[in-house]
């Protein structure tokens, strides 16, 4: 019983199908399953949203179109029109994270984005894209990204050093922000939900009714966590488009 109430237990990874390549373990786990479920949900959502192709959209088509326009507008406003080349990548990131976050809020569902390796890998894919695109498009001039214009020569080395450090720390902050938000939210939810059972079990008589307090807290936390789930997907996507903007237009 105590294990079931452990707020950390929800992050445990269980192997569903044991697989490996050489000495590397590539087992299909509950995490992998939730990735597949999330991606299938996205595909199903987009498939059902685009089957009718009507001029006047229905509800599902409206939602699909809103998600499309939302991400497209975000890219246009941060990275400009040429940023739209990366639209599928940013849209996939946004939807993947959004669905992982939201599906993870359903009780007994694993949250793939609560593992740092996943969020960090997504952040690194962004970093890699930025570096490859930046160097491929601008070559050596891409390094201008680290040299802001209009800075006095005297403090330029310091500024360049700071810019390089901030650039290199991007994938960490990018990945850890999402991970920490998901982790903290889920721990809090599980903690308060666990309190309901613990208080109900531990207390006697009328005092049992005080278990309603953590219940109220859980109910109050839930919409907040749904907001955070959406917000973090949005933040991840908008930062991605900001970074891609740096790759496309390195001069500040």
């Amino acid at each position: 019983m105590a294990d079931g109430l452990d707020p950390i237990a929800q992050f445990e990874i269980h192997k569903l199908v044991d697989l490996s390549i050489g000495k590397y373990d590539i087992s299909f786990t509950n995490s992998s399953l939730m990735m597949v479920v999330g991606s299938l949900c996205i595909c199903l959502f987009l498939f059902l949203g685009t089957t009718k192709r009507s001029i006047i959209p229905g509800r599902l088509q409206s939602m699909a179109e809103i998600s499309y326009e939302f991400v497209a507008d975000m890219i246009r406003s941060t990275a400009g029109r040429d940023g739209l080349k990366f639209f599928p990548f940013i849209y996939a990131l946004f939807m993947f994270i959004l669905f992982a976050n939201v599906l993870g809020l359903i009780p007994f569902f694993f949250t793939t984005t609560s593992h740092i390796i996943v969020t960090f890998a997504l952040a690194m894919s962004v970093m890699t894209t930025v570096l490859v695109v930046g160097i491929w498009k601008h070559g050596f001039k891409f390094l201008k990204l680290f040299v802001p214009s209009g800075v006095p020569i005297a403090i330029l080395p310091l500024v360049v050093l700071l810019e390089v450090i901030s650039f290199l720390s991007r994938p960490f902050s990018h990945g850890i922000r999402l991970w920490a938000n998901m982790l903290a939210g889920h721990i809090m939810l599980k903690l308060f939900a666990g309190f309901i059972i613990m208080m109900f079990a531990a207390l006697a008589g009328a005092a049992k009714m005080t278990a309603i307090l953590p219940f109220i807290m859980t109910v109050a936390l839930m919409p907040l966590e749904i907001l955070v789930a959406f917000l973090q997907a949005y933040v991840f996507a908008i930062l991605t488009s900001v970074y891609i903007n740096d790759a496309l237009h390195p001069g500040h």
């Binding site: 950390i8 992050f11 445990e12 990874i13 192997k15 697989l19 390549i21 590397y24 373990d25 590539i26 087992s27 299909f28 786990t29 995490s31 992998s32 990735m35 597949v36 991606s39 996205i42 595909c43 987009l46 599928p88 990548f89 849209y91 996939a92 939807m95 993947f96 793939t112 609560s114 593992h115 740092i116 390796i117 996943v118 890998a121 997504l122 894919s125 991970w179 982790l183």
Partner: peptide, 26 residues
């Protein structure tokens, strides 16, 4: 669990496969 290094390879592998397929499909 999120810092359990032994799960990293499988998570990375499946993230790569699933996200790659999702990206391709989208």
């Amino acid at each position: 669990p999120p810092l359990d290094v032994s799960t990293f390879s499988s998570q990375l592998f499946w993230l790569f496969i699933v996200f790659g397929l999702l990206l391709l499909l989208l």
